[in-house]
Amino acid sequence: MAMNPTDTALPLRDFPGLAELQDLVIPPSASSQPAVDALKDGRLTLQCCANCHRHRLPVAPVCPYCGSSAFDWKASTGQGVVVSWVRYPRSYLPAFEALIPYVVLCVELTEGPRLFGRLVGKDVEPRIGMPVSAVIERWTDGGHAVAFAATDGAA
């Protein structure tokens, strides 16, 4: 996959819980495989419409803004702001048992799309509007998923 040469890989860390990610992610298809592969290389990639140049998530065959099916893969900067957040005082999935209470963010990336990710770091109080940066977590089975950390100096 041709990547933007100016992009940089995102920080990589180990997922602090215990679980096999493969049980918790959408099974990849040929359509989503480029994004899954890029995540292993430390990049969060988005489809970018070749017609209206807007980014989108999740992987979809049609641009939600203009209806075009032509697109390019683009690497995200991983920078965004918190649109909303929730906190789980208990875990309903074994993977997160050791992390409670944990916070899940809805983040709007600077490129536009929104996605959900866990807030990394227990001592960070979430707030709407808080700048965050994507990190990539490596799970015990070698899978990779996106989480978010408060951008330095922003918490």
């Binding site: 918790l24 649109v83 909303s84 789980y88 999935l93 959900f116 866990r118 709407i128």
Partner: peptide, 22 residues
């Protein structure tokens, strides 16, 4: 969104509620 820990039907409603309140 399981890998993010966003589980239960309550999770999505809670996320929408937090945004709405704000």
């Amino acid at each position: 969104t399981l890998h993010a820990g966003l589980v239960l039907p309550a999770g999505g409603t809670a996320m929408a509620l937090q945004r709405y309140l704000h």
